[in-house]
Structure formats: structure tokens, C-alpha cells
Amino acid sequence: MAFSSLLTQQQPHHNWRWLILIFAVLFSGCERPDPIIEIDGPTMGTYYSVKVARPPQGMTAASLKQGVEKILAQVIAEISTYDKTSELSRLNQNASTDWIPVSANVYQLIAEGQRLAALTNGTYDITIGPLVNLWGFGPEARRDTPPSQDDIQAAQARVGWKKLELQAQPPAVRKAQADLYLDLSSLGEGYGGDQIAAWLKTQGVTDYLVAIAGAIRTAGVNAKRQPWAIAIEEPLIEHRTMHRVIPISNRAVATSGDYRNFFERDGKRYSHEIDPRTGTPVTRNLGSVTVVGEVGITVDGLATALMVLGDERGLELAKAQNVAAYFIIRDGEELRGIATPAFQQLFDHAED
């Protein structure tokens, strides 16, 4: 979701319990034929929810929660910009322009961010941290007024994905500019889901749903032996409504939107979705983008990238890359959904 600082905040987002309720409603109804363990809680400034159908022998809610929260703590220790001792924070504080060793996990995230930056010609950029912070969506103080143009230009001078060089073996990065500041928040929720999914596999779990805010990983089927039902929310501020429900098995899903993390000034909304080319939040009729794929970090980053590109350029890129994506566009008072061919192929017949 991206360029979203919610991924690394230490205080839970106030809407997480409502979102968990969506899942609970979807999975309730008739009596469940199979056992299921469900846990949830705050993490990274938002929420997590994990559901395990037909859990392996010996797994309890307590043991599941302990394992999941240990993984989430590790994710925060790796990529939080709010934790000044995290690996990413130490990298950002390091003013060296020589090679800086990084862990394999952080390297994987940075490499994926650079791949998406190249794919979008810099519209997606993990060095956007100075702009995220300037606009009040990072670990620094929130704001309710836009920054000056001089401040925007100064922050932009510290942004640029081509200023970052990678070395695969041993994993390391090199900054061309000492004050480069990376923000991996747009990959963080998907990454957390990937890490939990990998751990669940080691525990013998074959049927699960993992949700960290708008990033979801699934495997197998739910307690009714049906695909997991995932709600795509309407991009509205005033109330929360399900726009569409899609059946998901063995895939990752992520949604990015402009309608939850923002501030308003003089009747204008400034969202956390920032375009590094202009240094300002995007202002379009595109309300949200949902992407479905195989890997959490990829769909999480793509959802952000497509959101910043907008409904025209984003849709064009998604079609060209065969991405399963669903765009919700505001047409005045109406909402209009546009699915890419890859998304239609996955879901149109499944929902009939």
C-alpha cells in the first residue's frame, strides 16, 4: 500500500477491528464442518488477522499467536522506519557511500523495490522516504498543511532510485548520495504476510488466510472447504462498504488507496500516495487498486505503483505486464470498477 507509513507505525490503526469483522462476517453463517483457529491483533500501526483451517495436531490459538507475533516483531526489527534501531533505520543513518552490508531479507525487499522502480520508470521509488516524512506520513510529526515548494524541492533532491546500487553476493547496497533515505513501507505488509505464510508451511499448515491490513496471503480453502472470500472495499471516507468479493486460494492480494491515510486543507485532500516525480500526493479520480498474484511483496508494491501511475497509465502497464488488477474509479458520485484481462480471467467465471 504503499508509500504508506502505516506499515511501520507503532500505534494500531483505529479501523483494524472493523476490517477483521468483514472477514468474520464472510466466514460466518452455517455451522462450520471443520475446525478453525483465528487470531488477530495490532501490528505495524495497523492490524493482522490469521485464520488456520484444519490446524495440525497440537496447534492452539496461543501457539499460533506466539509464532506469528514473533515473526512480526522480526519484520519490524528489519524494516521499520519508526524503530531507530531497525536494520533499515541503521542503513538510513549510515552516511557512507561505500558498500554497506545488508541481510538477505532486506536485500530481497530492496531488490524488489528497484525492480518495480525500473518497471515504472521511477514512478515507484523506495528512496521516497524524505518526501513521505516531509508530508507527515512517516515517523516524523504529522501535519495538516502542505509543505512549501522549497521544502519539496529540497526533499526531492534526496530522492532517486538510480542513486542506489545493489550487490547480490554478499548482499550489500551502495548510496551515490550519503543522505539517501529508504522507505520499504509499500512492501512491508506484503512481506510480513509472506514471512508468516512461510512459517505456517513449516508448521504443517496447508489451509490459511493471513491479512496485514490490505495485504493478504492465502493457501488451500476455508473451514467450509471453499476458497477464501476476500472483500474489496469501496474507496469511501464517509462509510465502509464492500464493493466486491472475490474467491481466493493459493494467492496473494493487496489493495492500495487514497481514502484512509490523508489530511485535508482548504477543501483539498492530500493522501499518503506520493508521486516522486512531482514531490506531491497524487490527485486523481482513482480511488483504489487491488492486485492479485503469487508473492505478497510483489502485489503490495505493484498496488502502490499502479495507484501512483493512475487509472490510465497504471491500467496500461498492468495490461502490458499481464497483472491481475482491479481499479476503482470515482465518476462524480458513482464508483466504476475496471478489471484487467488477467483479473477477469481469474474471477469473472468464478463469481457467476
Rank of each mutant, 00 (worst) to 15 (best):
Q114R: 08
D179P: 04
I126W: 03
A176T: 02
Y191P: 04
D194Y: 02
L134C: 05
T120P: 00
D150G: 10
L184K: 01
N133F: 07
L116Q: 05
E140F: 14
P146E: 13
R143D: 05
T120Y: 07
V173Q: 09
T127M: 08
A154R: 15
L180F: 07
D194I: 00
Q177A: 12
Y124W: 06
A118H: 10
T145R: 15
Y181C: 05
P139H: 12
W161N: 01
G193L: 01
Y181G: 02
L166I: 09
Y124H: 10
G122F: 02
D179F: 03
G136F: 04
E165A: 15
R115H: 08
D151L: 11
P146W: 13
Q195K: 14
K163P: 00
Q167G: 10
G188R: 06
P146I: 08
D183H: 15
L116N: 04
K162G: 03
S185D: 06
D183Q: 07
S185F: 00
A154L: 12
W135T: 08
S185Q: 04
P170S: 06
A154G: 05
A117D: 03
Q114G: 05
R115Q: 11
A176I: 00
G129Y: 05
D183L: 00
A178T: 07
L131M: 07
Q169M: 13
F137R: 09
R143V: 15
A118G: 09
L187C: 04
P147V: 00
E140A: 13
L116G: 03
A117L: 08
D125I: 01
W161Y: 15
R143G: 07
R143S: 09
A172T: 06
K175A: 02
G138P: 07
A178P: 11
R174K: 15
R143Y: 07
R158V: 00
R174T: 03
G138H: 06
F137S: 07
R142D: 15
S185E: 03
P139W: 04
A141L: 11
Y191Q: 03
R115Y: 06
N121F: 08
A155Y: 10
Q167T: 06
A117N: 04
Q156D: 01
V173K: 11
G188F: 02
L180M: 10
P171G: 04
P146V: 09
L166T: 08
R174N: 09
A117I: 04
A118P: 02
G192H: 07
S185V: 00
L116T: 03
G193C: 15
L182C: 01
N133Y: 06
A118E: 15
D151Y: 04
N133W: 08
D150A: 15
Q114Y: 03
A118R: 13
S185M: 01
K175T: 02
A178I: 02
S186W: 03
I152W: 10
G193N: 12
W135S: 07
G122Y: 06
K162H: 13
S186T: 01
G192W: 05
T145M: 13
Q169C: 10
L131C: 06
Q114M: 15
A168H: 12
F137N: 05
I126V: 15
R174C: 08
V159T: 12
E140D: 14
R115P: 11
Y191M: 00
